[in-house]
């Protein structure tokens, strides 16, 4: 690991100030992704600004919703009684990711900024437009079993690896950020981006901005929810495909509201808007779910090694909806 300058500010403005807009300066939170990337030589910060002592760890009920401090660890969020009761989907998604030890370290803000697990990105000897813009994409003609089927570009077919973000996307979370130009809010929808011509940009944060919190709107989906993650082993593995499904059902199994998002299929958590539209106002039947799953697949495109995702994804949507609706 390349030597770097280490700083540990104790208040947020100081942290933002010392990091400044330096390209070589990074915020360090849980470190579970950044320290790994540094060890692999994927990133080599000149300066690490340790933000762990900033007062951004609280989880509070604010208004009708929930405000999760950026430094709240994944475990703290997943195990929080209010989250378990009112946002169980988030709890399930977080617990489907990584391992208990990593979840104890990883933070909410850090999880949102998790880099892709694409092997070409992680191996500095391979071409990767995300790591070195213009160097080419190793995956597009390479081993792309883990890669995107939605929203990819010629430059990059990597996927976002986060499970938490899939739930946050489904729940319409808002990311609060603070930066040299002040504070602002970014809807989850707009936070992560598609690779397009600039795959080096994972998200829409501006230079020097720090995530301070994630806000969830008032809880709606408290009961009929499921996070299904299909992976190559039962636990401690990244998703082949994952689905966050949330249903708001009336007394006669009518679908008042529905949220669907997928992980492991795109450069950002992939919201299934058309499928949601289709299901809204319909009743819970396997056939409706099956149709919704087919609608969700419109525009999907497989590559040489991930064609299976075109079959697996609709199956996963169906299964997640069935489980959420408790149809066996």
């Amino acid at each position: 690991m390349k030597p770097f300058q280490y700083m540990r500010p104790t208040d947020t403005p100081a942290a933002i100030r010392v990091k400044g807009k330096e390209a070589g300066a990074y915020f360090l939170a849980g470190g579970t992704n950044l320290v790994d990337l540094m060890k692999m030589g994927v990133v080599a910060p000149e300066k690490l600004v340790d933000i762990n002592r900033l007062p951004l760890r609280g989880i509070e009920v604010v208004g009708g919703g929930l405000r999760i401090g950026a430094l709240a660890t994944n475990s703290e969020v997943a195990d929080h009684p209010y989250v378990l009761e009112h946002y169980p989907l988030l709890s399930m998604a977080i617990n489907a990711g990584a391992s208990p030890q990593l979840r104890n370290m990883a933070t909410t803000g850090g999880n949102l900024l998790q880099r892709t697990r694409c092997s070409y990105f992680f191996d500095p000897t391979m071409p990767c437009n995300k790591r070195v813009p213009g160097s080419g994409c190793g995956a597009i003609d390479g081993i792309n079993r883990m890669h995107a089927i939605f929203g990819a570009s010629e430059k990059c077919i990597a996927v976002n690896p986060s499970d938490m973000s899939v739930a946050l996307r489904a729940l319409d979370a808002v990311v609060r950020v603070s930066g040299p130009a002040g504070e602002r809010s970014i809807a989850m929808e707009d936070f992560h981006r598609l690779p397009g011509e600039q795959p080096e940009l994972d998200n829409t944060l501006q230079k020097g901005e720090l995530i301070t919190a994630v806000e969830l709107p008032a809880p709606v989906f408290t009961k009929n929810v499921h996070y299904l993650k299909i992976r190559d082993r039962t636990s401690y593995a990244f998703a082949l495909v994952s689905v966050a499904a949330a249903l708001d059902l009336d007394g006669s199994r009518g679908i008042r509201g529905v949220r669907l998002a997928m992980g492991g299929v795109a450069h950002k958590p992939w919201r299934l808007g058309a499928a949601e539209e289709f299901l809204k106002g319909k009743t819970v039947t396997e056939d409706n779910f099956r149709q919704a799953a087919q609608i969700a697949m419109q525009g999907a495109k497989g590559y040489s090694y991930n064609q299976f995702k075109l079959r697996m994804a609709p199956n996963a949507i169906l299964q997640a909806l069935k489980t959420a609706a408790a149809i066996v």
């Binding site: 360090l28 470190g31 370290m105």
Partner: peptide, 27 residues
């Protein structure tokens, strides 16, 4: 593994289990 991929380095920090291989000592 030195990368948080195996758990052999698990210790408790302030009573919580973590992967010590991904935790910088200074923090």
């Amino acid at each position: 593994c030195d990368r948080g991929q195996c758990g052999a380095c698990t210790v408790h920090v302030d009573g919580v289990r973590v992967n010590s291989c991904l935790s910088l000592a200074v923090t």
